[in-house]
Write a protein that binds this DNA or RNA. Structure first.
Length: 884
RNA sequence: GGGAGCAUAGCUCAGCUGGUUCAGAGCACCUGCCUUACAAGCAGGGGGUCAUUGGUUCGAAUCCAAUUGUUCCCACCA
């Protein structure tokens, strides 16, 4: 069989992914096995694959493939999120390009366009995940607005409303004037902004609503909001303003007379210590407004322009108005001074528009009963976070949680199932799963009501209000809580997500799970890090610093990219991404490939009997695998995936390729015996199984090339090797053999001796220490190219030496050796050993140590002393021999 | 302003309940090799006062405190 010397992932990857799909190997149905369920964090339907997805989904795939090979019924459910704001923004932009304005469309017309857009462009990311090798059960692909998920969301809304957990209220919300919707606190990003602090004069009311000659200076960053001022506040203990008590002030330009209120909220140190109060446009002012029963004057339209309350400024944009009003204030002589000022201004995460605090009617979900349960689930350990440090963040948030604003002023999403109608001149509300149901309910109060008299709420629900149900709604557990699927697959096993959505999503899923299933939605949460560029910056479209994952996989192979990313990404640690890490993955794939070439290139002989060297080599490799498996299992238990991968990597590259294959390798052209070959294929297979979760494609390919397989066979369905008892003494013995071989190679290297020239090796036998690797002597001879290996009673003349432990090893030289160089080496060695001995002696001469430390520790130190003394003696003897 | 985390080799990180896993790994680097599996490779090698300063202890990378630096989260004083 002719096998190319370089591994080519392209054909291999496409071939096997198609095979897995065709054989439906990712598909799961409930059965008698223990389930292992993972739900994908649903990417935005508008999304395209980025590096964060790569990392996140690779981890999920590793866990799912491993669980399946460990005999569990693995089910990884994929899906996408409708992403209200992001998608609606895209559709609006698309329509705009076609000359259509959203405001000219009816809701139904708009939704038709939106669904068309979704069908055409949505979910590209799911296709891209296939390239990565993601073994999702595609038959279960879900969408947060599909025919199962949509009604589930509505059902939950109605239910929570009936339980009294959902209410409608006037609240100060974060208004996005561009998207024309309220956004949650979590969707506001504060950015440093260089602005001005304006000092304005508020004249004291003379009692008749006219300015007197006295004035108070008030500092503000937003002079345009004076139009909505309804009070000025000072600290009650501020002597500067003591005489203002009970007075009124005239708002500059506006001419309105407003009261002076006194409240400790005011920071006397800031500005002038006098604060203007605009209850409609500032959260804190709003609260003060409530406290002092102040008038609320809303001066803005929803799009951020001034409304009629803005008087002569009506219709202007808020920022244009700010300039104009400053000009007018200057002209009126009402400006005391202007300072440069840097503060943080809230921006909309989605549209980047400056957030406008706005008083509006929104729907809220109460958190006071839901939050404590979610906190308990994590505190009690029913859910474990990896790494654990995120518990702190989680706790802090839940302990200070505010009610969740769940309404959004958009069309793309689940429309809030609240209906309004007139009853005796005021508006009544009914909440119901359908219009028919709402009508039925409403008729109980107003029997003559017609369907056309009911008006459904215009708003939709926050997208997270659908995603928080994801682990349940995927199995239709909301509508049919007793169905066999939800009973089998819930709770899911592991959730893999990024820490930035711990509040948006993780905490809320826990709440929903507790509320609707009475059980947590998952047992473990694995938080990935954030993928950054080499400079430590977050990857973003704007910076253009994000590599195209598809192109990367083209270049390095999906396995290479997966391996490279995982190797450098311990849980919770940010990943500074550099293409070179993919190179390491690609190189590893190539290494495995070439190991296959070597093994498959050997002719096999049935006559040849297995040599003792080969037998012990096989034995060693098997023991070694068992030992590493034990470590890897611990790593997986602790979710240390990168450690597990690194150990697998070294097992294959170092132990298997660099040692084992060299040990059993027949002389060129000679055959290998059947038994060793067969064991080697077994070992190779086992290694491929171990690697398969990390590198699914190449392992499947090689597994098929190693032996004839039946048409339906796949490595995916093989059993993952598990650790068994292993003989540590054999492993130790081999470590000694390795040390000897390495010592000889080092000697050759430093003295420029050819590896082709066979050398004789002598081990100096001390009193009763036998040669330390009896079973591997033949192998050492082969690996180090020794002509002989013997134990001697005394030091040979004219030999180079090195030490393995306390055993001196000699290689006699025919030609003269460079005495000067050898002496120098020995001298350095001597110095080190003497220093080491001194540090040991310091301890042993310390009575407190000898008496205070455990017997075992002291014994170890004594052994160290003995070893060091022996080594020093040996070195000195060698030096003496050289100088003789 | 409040809170949490981190600081070990050039880079990314291990290092569990203080003591032979105590100073480690991978990559990068240096030297020598195109040795018929692999130069995407082989063999060998150098490199760290474990951020700083104190403390506890017979003994500290490991425990405690302070300092410095750094990251993240929360709040958002107009």
């Amino acid at each position: 069989m002719e096998i190319a010397s370089k591994y080519d992932p392209h054909a291999v990857e496409d071939k096997w992914y198609a095979f897995w799909l065709e054989k439906k190997l990712f598909h799961s149905e409930p059965d008698g096995r223990q389930p292992y369920t993972v739900v994908i964090p649903p990417p935005n339907v508008t999304g395209v694959l980025h590096m964060g997805h790569m990392l996140n989904n690779t981890i999920q795939d590793v866990l799912v493939r491993r669980a399946r090979m460990l005999g569990r019924n693995a089910c990884w459910v994929p899906g996408v999120d409708h992403a209200s704001i992001a998608t609606e923004a895209k559709v609006v932009a698309m329509l705009k390009e076609r000359g259509i304005e959203k405001r000219d469309l009816t809701r139904d017309e708009f939704m038709k366009y939106a669904w068309e857009w979704k069908e055409k462009y949505g979910g590209i990311i799911l296709q891209q995940l296939r390239k990565l090798g993601a073994g999702c059960d595609w038959d279960r692909t879900a969408f947060t607005m599909d025919e199962v998920r949509y009604p589930s969301v509505i059902k939950v809304f109605v239910d929570l409303y009936r339980k009294g957990l959902i209410y409608r209220g006037a609240r100060m919300v974060n208004w996005d004037p561009k998207a024309l919707t309220a956004v949650s606190d979590e969707e506001v990003v504060y950015k440093e902004s260089h602005g001005k602090l304006f000092y304005l004069r508020y004249y004291v009311d003379n009692g008749a609503g006219q300015p007197s000659d006295k004035y108070v200076v008030v500092a503000t960053t937003r002079p345009e909001t004076i139009l909505g001022d309804t009070a000025v506040c000072v600290h009650p203990e501020d002597e500067r303003y003591g005489d203002l008590k009970g007075k009124r002030l005239i708002v500059p330009l506006v001419g309105r007379s407003v009261p002076v209120i006194m409240d400790e909220y005011v920071d006397r140190e800031f500005g002038t210590g006098a604060l203007k109060i605009t209850p409609a446009h500032d959260v804190n002012d709003y609260n003060l407004g409530l406290k002092y029963d102040l008038e609320t004057i809303n001066i803005f339209n929803d799009n951020g322009t001034l409304n009629e309350a803005g008087q002569q400024y009506a219709g202007m944009d808020r920022f244009a108005c700010r300039k104009q009003i400053m000009k007018d204030l200057e002209e009126a002589g009402l400006v005391e001074k202007v300072e440069d000022y840097t503060n943080k201004v809230g921006h909309s995460e989605r549209t980047d528009a400056v957030i406008e605090p706005k008083l509006s009617t929104q729907w809220f979900l109460r958190m006071d009963t839901l939050a404590p349960k979610a906190l308990e689930a994590v505190e009690s350990g029913r859910i474990q976070f990896h790494p654990e440090k995120f518990k702190n963040t989680y706790r802090h948030w839940l302990e200070n949680i505010k009610d969740w604003c769940i309404s959004r002023q958009l069309w793309w999403g689940q429309r809030i199932p609240a209906y309004y109608y007139d009853l005796n001149g005021h508006t009544e509300t009914v909440v119901a799963e359908s219009a028919e149901d709402a009508l039925r309910q409403a008729r109980e109060k107003r029997p003559d009501l017609q369907a056309a008299d009911l008006r459904q709420d215009e708003d939709v629900l926050d997208t997270w209000f659908s995603s928080w149900l994801w682990p349940m709604s995927l199995f239709d557990g909301i509508r049919n809580p007793d169905n066999p699927e939800i009973k089998y697959y819930y709770p899911t096993a592991d959730l893999i997500t990024a820490p930035d959505i711990i509040f948006f999503w993780v905490a809320r899923m826990i709440m929903a799970g507790e509320e609707y299933m009475g059980e947590v939605p998952f047992r473990h949460v694995y938080f990935t890090g954030i993928v950054r560029d080499k400079l430590g910056r977050k990857m973003s479209k704007q910076l253009g610093n994000s590599p195209d994952p598809i192109a990367l996989m083209e270049q390095y192979g999906a396995d290479g990219v997966r391996m490279g990313m995982l190797l450098t990404a311990p849980a919770g640690n940010d990943l500074p991404f550099d293409e070179s890490i993919c190179e390491q993955g690609r190189n590893f794939a190539n290494k495995i490939w070439n190991a296959l070439r070597l093994v498959k290139g050997w002719p096999v002989s049935d006559e040849l009997k297995q040599s003792a060297d080969c037998r012990v080599s096989v034995e060693w490799m098997e023991q070694r695998i068992a030992a590493v498996l034990e470590e890897i299992e611990h790593d997986f238990d602790a979710y240390r995936l990168s450690e597990a991968l690194m150990k697998s990597y070294k097992l294959v590259w170092d132990d298997f390729c660099s040692w084992y294959l060299e040990m059993i390798k027949p002389a060129y052209g000679s055959p290998i015996d059947r038994e060793t070959m067969s064991s080697t294929l077994d070992i190779f297979e086992r290694l491929m199984c171990m690697l398969h979760p990390f590198m699914p494609f190449i392992t499947e390919e090689i597994w098929h090339l190693l032996r004839e397989r039946c048409e339906h066979a796949s490595i995916m369905m093989e059993h993952m090797p598990t650790s068994v008892f292993y003989d540590q003494r054999l492993l130790d013995e081999f470590a000694t053999a390795q040390a000897i071989a390495t010592g000889v190679r080092g000697l050759r290297n430093s003295r420029g001796l050819s590896p082709k020239e066979p050398l004789a090796l002598m081990l100096l036998k001390h009193s009763d220490d036998a040669p330390q690797c009896p079973r591997f002597e033949g192998i050492v001879s082969k690996l180090a190219n020794l002509s002989s290996m013997e134990t001697v009673q005394s030091k040979p003349e004219g030999a180079l030496s090195f030490m393995v432990g306390t055993t001196e090893c000699f290689v006699p030289m025919s030609q003269d050796i460079d005495r000067e160089a050898e002496l120098q080496k020995l001298q350095a060695d001597l110095q080190y050993q003497e220093g080491f001995l001194a540090s040991v002696m310091k301890k042993l001469n310390n009575d407190k140590f000898v008496n205070g430390a455990p017997e075992k520790v002291v014994a170890v130190e004594r052994q160290k002393r003995a070893d060091a003394e022996q080594k020093i003696e040996a070195i000195k003897a060698q030096m003496a021999a050289l100088q003789a």
